[in-house]
Design a protein around this nucleic acid. Structure first.
Lengths: 190, 190
DNA sequence: TGTTTTACCTAACTACATTAGGATATAACC
DNA sequence: GGTTATATCCTAATGTAGTTAGGTAAAACA
């Protein structure tokens, strides 16, 4: 049959499709109508698989955090110290460039009560902690240093994807410098 | 008359009201209907004063940038060097806490073709340049250093307002440390 | 004072999210 | 294999928001 009587959707397929639309066409284009069209069904049918647009966005947020957690862990496996920081920063930036909309969703956590989301976010934090503990950081110092590193990297990539930097001067070079600044700050944290 | 026949609106009043709603109730509540209700008119009437929701948001973005430009300039008047950096950072954070929604609008510039917006954004950059030139920075070094400082401060405050930090460890203390890290980095920029 | 302009209105249209209820393919079971 | 049950899809209809068209009366002006 050219048009199968059932599309054979799953929550997984809907989330995957939503992710592609969000990252390729922007978050504004992410409507149930648009997703349904892409999947060859009508928008009310999606309610069988996701809990409305709100529920879908929660799933996207979780998906984004899971990908980040995985990529960050892979990035720092087998390395430590300065090189681990550089690889973490690079994998962070790569993720954001590949999934700009997904990333923006992961930031808008808004007092997240979802247990699973909290767990994956905790995994990401643990990866950072593992990297920074090599520098002798622990306790509150570790927390402050982590906040600093997250701020600098998140700040850079979020300004970058929203077009906040001019392009006459190379953003790659700026990012390289920022990585080195972070590295040197960790070597003798206040 | 209890109900005046004309509300006597101006673009200014509409923008001001929109700003209050956005910052107090969140960007999601910022609808023409909500603004009209607040002003005692019907939503189509707003089209006399602003160019739809899109035009209103552009005005809000401009308004946000103008306030920022003014506050940052005032913050660093009469001081220079380390203290100027600290005051800039503090006024940045204060603005974002007071106008979280307005701030988020200023970040989503998206290849802004608006000449006025570009001009005000340039003013803000000039203030930062003026502060950092004291450290002997110029040319590309100045650009890189500026990007670093913006990234760290923007990163911190945007993570902070979106609830990205736990509260067991004081965010104020983290921010104080970040300011000192930035100061020391400027003293011997790479 | 008469005329024009402006600021508001109602009515109506579009887009999107959502719910209710129905049809049938697919799966489960006998 | 035939019957039943469930799940997946549908159409129809509702609510909210943005927007446009066109009307009316207040305000500005000459």
């Amino acid at each position: 049959m050219l048009v199968p009587p059932r599309a054979g959707l799953t929550t997984e397929i809907v989330v995957e499709t939503a992710m592609k639309i969000a990252d390729k066409e922007g978050i504004a284009q992410l409507t149930l109508f648009r997703i349904a069209e892409e999947l060859g069904v009508k928008s009310p049918s999606l309610y069988e698989h996701v809990d409305g647009i709100e529920g879908l966005i929660k799933l996207l947020r979780l998906r984004g955090l899971k990908i980040m957690a995985r990529e960050f862990q892979r990035a720092v496996i087998g390395v430590s110290g300065d090189e681990a920081i550089r690889r973490f920063a690079d994998s962070f930036r790569s993720f954001v460039k590949e999934h700009p909309s997904l990333y923006s969703l992961t930031v808008e956590s808004d007092i997240e009560d979802d247990e699973e989301i909290r767990a994956v976010a905790g995994e990401i934090l643990d990866t950072i902690y593992a990297v920074l503990r090599i520098y002798g950081l622990s306790g509150e110092k570790l927390i402050h240093a982590t906040r600093y590193m997250r701020s600098a990297i998140h700040g850079f990539v979020s300004l970058e994807i929203s077009g906040g930097f001019g392009l006459e001067v190379s953003p790659d070079e700026s990012f390289d410098l920022i990585k080195e600044v972070i590295v040197s700050n960790m070597k003798n944290w206040l």
